[in-house]
Computed example of a mutant assay.
Amino acid sequence: MENIFDIKFTFEQKVKEEVILKFSTKQGGSFNIFSHYWECFAWAAVIGFIRDEKLPLQTRQAERPFTLNTMRNGNGEKIVQSLICMCVAKAGSLDILKNPNDAINLINQYANGGFHYILKMIENGENSFNDLEKVKQEIFRRELVV
Rank of each mutant, 00 (worst) to 15 (best):
K120A: 08
N69R: 15
F115W: 07
Q27C: 09
M1E: 07
N105P: 04
G29A: 00
D131E: 15
S128E: 13
N127E: 14
R142D: 11
I47R: 07
R141H: 11
T10Y: 07
C87P: 09
K120L: 01
V88A: 04
N112C: 12
K26E: 13
I107A: 09
R60I: 14
D131G: 06
S30A: 14
I79C: 01
D95Q: 08
K16S: 03
F34G: 03
E133Y: 11
G29H: 00
V145Q: 08
E12W: 00
L57T: 04
G48E: 04
Q81V: 02
I107T: 12
F115G: 05
L144Q: 13
L55C: 08
V145E: 06
R72A: 12
A44T: 04
R142I: 15
A89S: 11
C87D: 08
I107F: 07
P56Q: 11
I118K: 03
A103G: 05
N75S: 13
I104T: 00
Q137E: 15
S24G: 03
N75G: 05
G76C: 07
F66S: 05
F49D: 06
G29V: 02
V88S: 00
E77P: 01
Y110C: 01
K120P: 01
E2M: 10
F140D: 09
W43H: 12
M1Q: 06
I122F: 04
A91F: 10
G28H: 12
R141C: 09
K134E: 13
T67L: 03
W43V: 01
L57M: 07
F11T: 09
I47F: 03
N101M: 09
N112A: 03
E17P: 01
D6Q: 13
L94D: 07
N105H: 12
Q13H: 00
T70Y: 07
A42D: 03
E138W: 14
F115P: 05
R141W: 07
E133N: 13
F9Q: 02
K98C: 11
V15G: 02
N3L: 06
Q81R: 08
L21T: 06
G113D: 08
N99F: 10
K14F: 02
V15L: 00
F31M: 04
E123Q: 15
W38V: 02
Y110T: 02
W43I: 00
S93H: 09
F34E: 05
Y110K: 01
K78P: 01
K120Y: 05
F23T: 01
N124S: 08
N124Q: 08
C85W: 06
I79F: 02
G29K: 01
G76H: 04
N105D: 15
Q61P: 02
N99K: 14
E63P: 06
E63K: 15
E2Q: 11
L94I: 05
G113C: 10
T59D: 12
G48H: 04
N112V: 03
Q109P: 06
M86Y: 14
N69H: 10
L55M: 12
I104D: 00
K8Q: 08
L94E: 07
N99Y: 11
R60T: 15
A111T: 03
R141N: 14
S35A: 05
M121I: 04
G48A: 04
V19Y: 02
I47T: 08
Y37Q: 12
T59Y: 10
K134F: 13
R142W: 11
Y37G: 07
K16H: 07
T59A: 10
I139N: 01
D52V: 10
E2R: 09
V19P: 03
G76L: 06
